[in-house]
Amino acid sequence: MWQFLKTWYHRLASPKWFYHTSGRWLPYLAAVTILLLVSGAIWGLGFAPEDARQGNSYRIIYIHVPVSVLALVGYYLMAVAGAIALIWKIKLADMVMVSAAPLGAVLTFLALLTGSIWGKPTWGTYWEWDARITSMLVLLFLYLGVLALSRAFTSRDTAYKACAILSLVGTVNIPIIYKSVDWWYTLHQPATIKLTGGSTIHPAMFKPLLVMIIGFYCFYALVLILNTRAEILRREQRSAWVRELI
């Protein structure tokens, strides 16, 4: 058992092994992703019942919610990869972390954008200082900070270590930020604005949402792997196995 774990550990840590194995699985993952996202979107757009209160504008939920979930999950993934890279000095982990930062920032931006488009027909404004939107905005700032920091260093080794520390500090802070923003919002909540409770969603509306969430998880994994592969190639261009690829 121990031996098995050990070989896996060494394999996983090897960029070469990762590059070859992920290359074999990528087409399947891409096919599943496209299938899930396209069918989920068609289901959500055309076949899910209309919401009684919000009408058809609620259909944005099928993008907004999965994107928001992955934006947050992505930050934790980035921090965990950073911690692994810091503690065990695994090269692959820091490549994953570097690849996760821009992807997460784009997803957070999309979450804000779709939320704001959704807000117009629902609340009558594009922007509302609501607890969730504000938390998302702070998350975007956290991502932008990590991105800016990673660009600032000339030494790649220092850059990933610095980003790992910053994202770990951010991870500790995220629950506190969310709680404080939540609390701040209850202080200032105008009585006229009511959020749609996600808890009482109808099953016929929830099923396509589930498909989309799984689809977006696949999408995230797919793009993260693609990014990591590109990063591996860039860093290992001098090694023998990369030369053999050409």
């Binding site: 058809n56 504008s57 993008i63 994107v67 999309l110 954008l113 779709t114 117009k120």
Partner: peptide, 13 residues
């Protein structure tokens, strides 16, 4: 009437 919002959100995404 919500087409603009829904389709622009899906399109941009």
């Amino acid at each position: 009437g919500h087409g603009v919002y829904v389709w622009s959100a899906y399109g941009i995404s």
